[in-house]
Design a protein around this nucleic acid. Structure first.
Lengths: 144, 144
DNA sequence: CTAAACCCGAGTAATTAACTATAGTTTCAA
DNA sequence: TTGAAACTATAGTTAATTACTCGGGTTTAG
């Protein structure tokens, strides 16, 4: 039971944008270097995030990417759903359009997966990018 | 973010054994038929569960499989960990021997994965096979 | 006009998932 | 004592997914 690197890397990149949130866009290359990610690969992730409306892009020289909304208003769940698809420990309890099997009515394991799904979604939707940035700052302070 | 069919099917099969828990072993074939699973595939899952000590086998005619402990004493988490490995939304927060990346100290996303891991483990470890069987019974009664 | 930057689509190697198959061993029961 | 039911072990196979990689575009500040 793993998230793929899409969710993992994508969240890192989004937090990088959150930490540099401001007026000027951040070039993909600098995000990739700071987070040690393949630029080619990150491009794909940013494309997904842009099409989903979580980030905006500015083309041309001095261009780059920036969050479409302030970090307080973007939840980890938003990012993960774009990159990994809807939360669903098994397909039959998918958040969106679950393909229920023919045994759905009496499937005895169903309750487990529903609880799990809700628990996962609960965690992901309770944390904003800003929450994490604050936590990271605190951490650095406490290490000083 | 999905569990594989190992965890999914394996839990179904374990619950089948729980529902038939008693003195006599249940042949694999009958579990496979009731749960509509490939017998060949289920064989592999049962082998893993047996080696992990969750089920016992009886060879020969009239043989089969049975839970090694009563359903109250087997948690969903026990089954899932045998079949899917340790709970770990990403490798660096694996329950067992996490391969921490070189950025572990200052990795900003880490807190998310830890919370998620603990939340998932919490759900899986809070539900026993007996809990689910009881729920299923109740469900059937309420539908009458 | 040129270089920095995003945009888009395709290709690809490696891994994993999900079975499938085959040959063997144990045990009961007729 | 032998045949069939059942578990045991290991290997093969096919398809999908993952995690990139690459090449050629377009936009725009300076």
């Amino acid at each position: 039971m793993r998230f793929s690197t899409k969710g993992h890397y994508g969240l890192k990149a989004m937090l990088d944008l959150a930490q540099h949130y401001g007026a000027v866009p951040v070039p993909l290359k600098s995000v990739a270097q700071r987070q040690r990610l393949s630029g080619y690969y990150l491009e794909q992730l940013f494309t997904m995030l842009r099409k989903a409306g979580l980030i905006k892009s500015v083309r041309g020289v001095q261009g780059g990417y920036m969050l479409a909304r302030p970090p307080e208003e973007i939840k980890v769940g938003d990012v993960i759903r774009v990159l990994e698809g809807p939360v669903a420990p098994v397909e039959c309890v998918n958040e969106v359009e679950p393909k229920e099997c023919d045994q759905a009515d009496y499937c005895i394991t169903r309750i487990v997966w529903v609880k799990l799904r809700d628990s996962i979604a609960g965690v992901l939707d309770s944390i904003s990018l800003a929450d994490i940035c604050r936590g990271a700052q605190k951490n650095q302070q406490s290490q000083e």
